[in-house]
């Protein structure tokens, strides 16, 4: 009996162990290529930024794709995460003077603070904003994002309009920062997958499908819309915290609404409503835009044209509603569960 339980346990955790192992192998492979000078730090950094963009886009997918709200202020949450975590490592602690054993803990703490602060803002913004719907919600979130940026410019302690330099580059590309980024990325994917396929996630989906019907099914739609905002904000905040500690310098203008529309583009180009779409959209566009750098000024022109063509000829995005199977939790009875999962449109 005992043995059978143990076996069940192994079977249950096998996919997770598999994914974790895959992430570790991936990390080691990249590290090896870097040591072997096949990959320059520049490439690794692009990969890291791609993963950060994935995190933010995954959070945005929860708000826009799963819950059916329309937020275009995600960069504001990234800013909150970046600034609050940087405040921890520069103002609260003198990071570089800390003993090496304490540094990871303080860094972890800083990322948590970044995520938490963004979450608080997510609540403060989500709660009143949800009184308005659709396009109005979009403009309110955009407005809040810009207000956050204005506020940062106002706070002298974090550099105001001049930006904040000298943040310890603890997650920098040379300090093995890829490990940190991969860790938080994997955590984000795992948490969001579990969230979406829980009763809370289904409640979010019901808000998207038909708010009134959802209410008559006993779903407090306000609660779940706000919750989606908070979770999405926390993800963005964590990504912001990492970003601050990769580059070591943050400036209010890095978080303008233009950045918010980037995430929107990643999501819709990849395929809104699925995590696969968010990940593939963010990763591929980040990389493609870097590859196209040799085009100099032509790069964004082509980007604009491609975006328009994409919406004309592949409107459902690259993934068009398909989800990677490992992003859908297995159920015993669900031997032949549909490919699209709960989020398919």
């Amino acid at each position: 009996m005992k043995e059978r339980n143990a076996n069940a346990g192994i079977r249950r955790y096998a996919p997770m162990i598999g994914v974790a192992a895959a992430v570790v192998v991936f990390y080691l492979a990249i590290e090896y290529l870097r040591q072997a000078r096949v990959l320059t730090p520049y490439y690794v950094q692009i990969l890291m930024f791609g993963l950060l963009n994935c995190m933010v886009t995954l959070g945005l997918n929860l708000i826009n794709g799963i819950t059916g709200q329309f937020s275009i202020g995600q960069a504001g949450f990234v800013a909150v995460g970046a600034y609050s975590s940087a405040a921890v490592t520069t103002l609260l602690f003198e990071f570089n003077k800390l003993p090496a054993t304490l540094q990871p803990l303080v860094f972890l703490f800083a990322v948590c603070v970044g995520g938490f602060a963004a979450g608080v803002f997510g609540y403060l913004i989500g709660r009143p904003s949800l009184r308005v719907k659709g396009d109005y919600l979009a403009i309110v979130t955009l407005g809040f994002g810009e207000i956050i940026r204005s506020l940062i410019r106002y706070i002298e302690a974090v550099g105001g309009p001049r930006g904040l330099p000298g943040i310890p580059q603890y997650a920098g590309v040379r300090g093995g920062g890829l490990a940190w980024v991969l860790f938080f990325f994997t955590l984000t994917v795992w948490f969001l997958r579990n969230y979406i396929y829980s009763f809370r996630g289904r409640a979010c989906v019901s808000c998207r499908e038909d708010e009134l019907a959802a209410e008559t099914m006993g779903v407090n739609t306000t609660t779940y819309k706000v919750q989606a905002f908070i979770v999405g904000a926390v993800t963005a905040g964590a990504a912001g915290a990492l970003q601050a500690h990769i580059i070591g310098f943050i400036h209010p203008d890095q978080f303008s609404y233009v950045r918010s529309t980037d995430f929107l583009v990643y999501l819709y180009a990849g395929g809104v409503g699925t995590m696969s779409g968010a990940i593939i959209g963010a990763m591929s566009l980040t990389i493609v835009l870097e590859i196209l750098r040799f085009l100099a000024d032509w790069r964004l022109i082509i980007y604009g044209v491609v975006l328009v063509l994409m919406m004309l000829y592949q409107p459902n995005g690259i993934c068009s509603g398909k989800e990677f199977p490992f992003l859908i939790p297995k159920l015993k009875a669900a031997a032949k569960s549909s490919k699209a999962g709960v989020t398919g449109r």
């Binding site: 583009v265 819709y268 022109i301 980007y303 604009g304 044209v305 491609v306 328009v308 919406m311």
Partner: peptide, 8 residues
């Protein structure tokens, strides 16, 4: 999204 593309 198309409008964003045109704008870019």
């Amino acid at each position: 999204i198309t409008a964003i593309g045109v704008s870019i």
